[in-house]
Each structure stands twice: as C-alpha cells, then as structure tokens.
Amino acid sequence: MELAEIKESFEFFDDWEDKYRFILEIGKDLPDMDDDYRIEKNLIRGCQSQVWLVYAIEDNKLRFQIDSDAHIVRGLLKILLVAINNLSPSEIIETDLETLFEELGLMAHLSMSRGNGLRAMIGKINQIAENGAS
C-alpha cells in the first residue's frame, strides 16, 4: 500500500465510521510480531496499549517492525509504517509525520494527552533515525 492510496481513501470518507473501519481494516495487514520480539525490552514507554518496536538498518535503510495489542493503534501504526518504512534515516527526519496525521484528520491520536501511543512511537522513530544519521 502506498501513502498516496491512503490519502486518497481518506478524502472519500464521509464520516468517522468510514474512517475508523478503514483504520481497523488496514491494521489487519500489519504482520503480527513474533512472540520472541514482544518483550519488555521492545515496548515503547508512555503508551496505554502495549506497543512493540524492533528495527534493523541495512544499506542505509531503516526497517521497522511494529505491533500493538490494540486494533486502532495497529491501524495507525500501519499508516506510520507506510510513510517511513525502508527510508534512510535522513529521509525519515525530513518526513513531517505530524502534518501527515493532521491532513488525515487524526490529530486526536497525536494529542499531548498522556499515554498516547502514536506520539511516543513517532518520538522513538525520530530518535532512531537521528542516531542512524549521525
């Protein structure tokens, strides 16, 4: 799935129901993480639901695997992955994820309220990208 496809789908949604059905649907595409990786060490702190992240860097491309025990979060993470997976660290740093979620009308999920998984995840990904770029 391309980011353009996601954006296009969002343009056609009339109401919250279409939007959230779509988010839940694409969340199902997110591959389940191996139990070996669903461990404390890979948990992202500051999320109400459990969110795990592992990554590898190959040929200057960052490859992420992300999973959550909450369905809506999985859908949001899928959008995130489509936007940044397999990019170089500097390309990730240049990607304005906040604007992307704003455009999709999903800013509520990026609110500063405590325990927001998506914001914590974006912070972590940017940190990894910055470490990878330096």
Partner: peptide, 13 residues
Amino acid sequence: NSHPNDIGTLLDQ
C-alpha cells in the same frame, strides 16, 4: 476481540 482503548476511541467518536 478488542482492547479497552479501541472501545474508548469508538465511543468517543
């Protein structure tokens, strides 16, 4: 088949 947070979001909407 859901996490409490999923329900929280779907009710909030």
